[in-house]
Design a protein around this nucleic acid. Structure first.
Lengths: 211, 211
DNA sequence: CACAAAATTAAACAATCGTTTAATTTAAAC
DNA sequence: GTTTAAATTAAACGATTGTTTAATTTTGTG
């Protein structure tokens, strides 16, 4: 059996299993997805999952650890903008981009965070959250120092951002009846554009609102 | 076996099973909760669940149908306020109140809405959403007619409200490290107060913001 | 008390779960 | 080409799943 306990050097076979497991876990949930489901979709023998990942739970852990880094806000992506409004806008774009880069994993993460059965992954999730809240705080403080933003609790801002995103994404089927999608555009693309616009707007509104 | 297919007259035993199942489904998820888990916690024989509810899935359906009505926004709770700002504030309070009246069920609903395995309940969820979006629209339009609100898409407003609420509630463990709870106050009470305040603020900000 | 219906029980059911084994095939190294 | 390791397979493992059965107890009614 290959070792993957510390650093993760995943071969193509493992990456393929991960990709399929990710989609199934996101769609049906971890518990409702059997290793035989995964094996069938990946066209491999059931035993290969244990051979490569030791256990189903460990597959989940590897899968999460492998992808979670992509969700961390990278300040370099927006701090080049000196105008606070522009920086905020760029940050939002980067934020939405990062989430959309792997929607399946993010759904798994939130489901796992809710379930108390496997609370161990909450640590990874918390670290991610802390990181992103700190980045958000920096952007807010920058605007405050420039005299254009009113300070607002970044924890609350982050909650609203992430909550709006999740609700937007996860209720795809519900949203479809309320909106018209321009032809030649995929639903997800449209969602991404509208979500970005909406988030930019509400953040600006919150940060410049005077009671 | 008692009949519960159409109107639901649930006896005390059934209500007790529902209450326990609700807590377990919310905590561990539907699939990760066995009927034996429920029976043990309810101190009844496993067969009683099938005796009273036919199947585990039907228990879920009865459980959802029995509680979902409480989440519908009731215009009478806030339309007495003639000032648009006050009406908006009262609506938010009523909104948060209704969700907090049964947090477990709401978690189950969102988890079920995400899972594609039992998509049938999505219909109930969609109807609820449509109802609440319509109530929200009325409040917005009222403020616009009074000349104090700028119109903003109620679907987006609703997404942000519900998303913020869910994220607030479901990441309880994550939030705890970021905030200080006044002594003599439960975490949920504090959460409720802060959430209400936050939602009022962002809705006002969005609805009065001029680009 | 007698009788009927409802409630409750222990036991067994077949199906599915994640995992392990032991044998076999494929690939790499010398 | 032979040897060694890695990859893959089918089969079986015990445990757990939701559900059903059939017997028993409890409850309500006359």
């Amino acid at each position: 059996m290959p070792d993957f306990s510390h650093d993760m050097e995943l071969n193509n076979k493992q990456l393929e299993i991960i990709a399929i497991a990710k989609a199934l876990f996101a769609q049906n949930g971890f518990d409702a997805t059997s290793v035989r489901d995964i094996a069938q979709r990946a066209q491999i023998n059931v035993a290969m999952i244990n051979y490569y990942f030791d256990s189903k739970e460990n597959l989940l852990e590897v899968l999460i650890k492998h992808g979670i880094e992509a969700y961390k806000l990278d300040a370099r992506k927006y701090e080049t903008a000196s105008d606070p409004f522009l920086r905020l806008a760029k940050m939002v774009e980067h934020y939405v981009d990062s989430k959309f880069s792997d929607l399946h994993l993010y759904q798994i993460l939130t489901n796992e965070a809710n379930s108390k059965k496997r609370a161990s992954y909450a640590t990874l999730f918390t670290a991610l959250r802390r990181h992103n809240i700190e980045r958000l705080r920096e952007v807010v403080v920058y605007g405050v120092e420039k005299g254009v933003f009113r300070f607002y609790d970044p924890v609350l801002l982050h909650t609203t951002m992430i909550g709006t995103f999740l609700n937007f994404k996860m209720n795809k089927s519900v949203m479809e009846e309320f909106i018209d999608i321009p032809k030649g555009m995929s639903f997800e693309d449209y969602l991404k554009i509208e979500l970005t616009k909406h988030l930019k707007y509400i953040l600006k509104a919150i940060l410049t609102y005077e009671n």
